[in-house]
Design a protein around this nucleic acid. Structure first.
Length: 494
RNA sequence: GGGCCCGUAGCUCAGCUCGGUAGAGCAGGCGGCUCUUAACCGCAAGGUCAGGGGUUCGAAUCCCCUCGGGCCCGCCA
């Protein structure tokens, strides 16, 4: 890569030639252009082989994808965000000198503007008969091969811009991501939730069990952590009387990247005062229903999307965590098992989690082993044992359980919701229990949060879910990297 | 952290099993062609075979190490 390729030399010499002729290969602007869809629309009324008799002028701009020369006529495909449009270059329109000049100076990948009139080719392709071309930026590097594009996963991630410029499908996918996020926002807004932004940097990352990224503040002279969840600040806002809040933002966990985990991911959490987890379930079901209808509209050409998003249409099956686990594993009386017994059962199921893990971890491992592989549709798993989380409220009728549900898609967990624990004294006790059982200082005891609860947290339900995973599920993508524009990669070796 | 697999021209790939000194398509160059759309036809050009080391008369090919990536497992919500 140190030496530029012969291709680049060739393209640079074209830039030099351009400048030598007093023309700017990288102009400042190109006002007045319309989308290629406007020209296609004007072509809709024309029969094959016909130029627009009114000669209505159009100005378009975009990237050249392919150039097909036929001696005294040539075709070029111009692509903008609205789609692709065929440019028709004729010696008769441009004159011999200009025609030859353009064909020798232009390459696939160049950004060009074109002025001309609508026409439909004899083969029926909507086209623009070009009167004037303008070079808007010369591409020194050639685009990927026109048919296969960029296929190497690493290259698609490291140079996402090349993936995007060469793949309309990729652009459509990330466009759909933004549109679906907009749909999520509208849904929560319409339901009366206030979108808020809480701090990414703080002295203690809490609300989940995960290793944080640590950074340093020059101002305070102390270490700061990047948030691992937004749960605790959002509940403080409920204490503050905001009643219904949600946040969509990046959350950071200092872990490996794999097909369902990314060290930085987009999380949505929502908290709703005076409601419980049954209400939250209904709210989420409505959201899933809406997204499952929207996704195939956004990507109508992808059959995988239609199939995957159909899984997000209600009604959803419900699984009782304890009953389902007992049924599938043959274990009886699960809730009365000691930590040692749970550890032995987890080991027997093939788990290698450390000796000193908590009861909750062993229960999670058992569920993961016996139940998760059997989940083949979007499923609500409900009423987990208390030991699995310190933040959910005890179940009002099932002993030894909390009011919690998790949503599972085939292959991964999507969402986690509770009727929140609001009693400050029990919250403090539960924090201490987890801390004591695990002896792990990553479960930082957030005293200020307990103090906030002492001012009074109304009855509240809350949910958190990974937006990237939701998109994977809706769009049928097997890897989280497919739905994140710039996933973390190691630096390339020197 | 463990296992398996991959890295060849700007891009997409073949060659590696069984060692003999690198091949195609696209893109680019030159020439031809007034309706193509993965346009077509002809000619010429294009390579630190990821990097380093080893075995060998000879290494893209076999062995070892390093880097980057993929998949699975582990860890981690």
């Amino acid at each position: 890569m140190a030496d530029e390729s012969a291709l680049e030399r060739e393209r640079r010499s074209k830039v030099a030639r351009w400048r030598a002729e007093g023309r700017e290969p990288y102009p400042y602007s190109f006002p007045g252009r319309v989308g290629t869809d406007a020209v296609r629309a004007a072509c809709a009324a024309l029969p094959p082989g016909q130029d627009d008799p009114a000669h209505t002028p159009f100005r378009v701009a975009g990237r050249l994808r392919a150039i097909r020369q036929h001696g005294r006529t040539a075709f070029a495909d111009l692509e903008d965000r609205a789609g692709e449009l065929q440019l028709l270059l004729r010696v008769d329109e441009l004159g011999e000198t200009a025609y030859r000049g353009w064909l020798s100076d232009l390459d696939p990948g160049d950004l060009v503007g074109a002025d001309g009139t609508a026409a439909v080719s004899r083969r029926g392709e909507p086209s623009l008969v070009v009167r004037t071309l303008t070079l808007l930026a010369k591409a020194i590097r050639p685009p990927p091969e026109k048919f296969h594009g960029l296929t190497d996963v690493e290259e698609r991630i490291r140079r996402r811009y090349v993936d995007l410029l060469s793949s309309p499908e990729s652009r459509a996918l990330f466009g759909a991501r933004t549109a679906l996020l907009g749909e999520v926002r509208r849904y929560f807004d319409e339901a009366g939730f206030l979108e808020v932004e809480t701090a990414v940097l703080g002295s203690v990352a809490g609300g989940a069990a995960a290793a944080p990224f640590v950074t340093r503040s020059n101002y305070t002279g102390s270490n700061l952590q990047l948030r691992i969840a937004t749960e605790l600040p959002l509940k403080r806002l409920i204490v503050g009387g905001l009643e219904k809040v949600y946040e969509i933002g990046k959350t950071f966990r200092n872990e490996d990247l794999d097909s369902t985990h990314s060290p930085e991911f987009t999380e949505l959490e929502a908290y709703w005062a005076y409601a419980d987890y049954h209400d939250m379930r209904r709210l989420l079901e409505g959201l899933f229903d809406r997204l499952s209808r929207r996704a195939p509209e956004l990507l109508p050409d992808d059959p995988a999307v239609a199939k995957a998003s159909a899984l997000f249409r209600p009604p959803f099956p419900t699984m009782d965590f304890v009953e389902e686990l007992e049924r599938r594993s043959g274990i009886t009386d699960l809730l009365s098992k000691s930590r040692e017994e749970l550890r032995a059962l987890a080991r027997a199921a093939g788990s290698t989690v450390p000796e000193n893990s908590s009861s909750g971890t062993f229960l999670d491992k058992l569920f993961e082993h016996y139940v998760e592989p059997a989940i083949d549709r979007v499923t609500f798993v409900v009423d987990h044992p208390i030991a699995t989380t310190p933040l959910a409220r005890r179940h009002r009728s099932k002993a030894g359980r909390v009011e919690r549900f998790e949503v599972f898609a085939p292959g991964f967990e999507l969402a986690n919701a509770y009727t929140e624990l609001t009693d400050p004294d029990e919250q403090e006790k539960r924090f201490r229990e987890q801390l004591g059982e695990r002896g792990d200082d990553r479960y930082a005891f957030d005293e200020d949060f307990v103090e906030a609860l002492q001012y009074g947290l109304p009855p509240t339900t809350g949910v958190g879910f990974g937006v990237d995973r939701l998109l994977m599920g809706l769009l049928g993508k097997p890897s989280i990297k497919e739905v994140i524009l710039f996933p973390l990669v190691r630096p390339r070796s020197a």
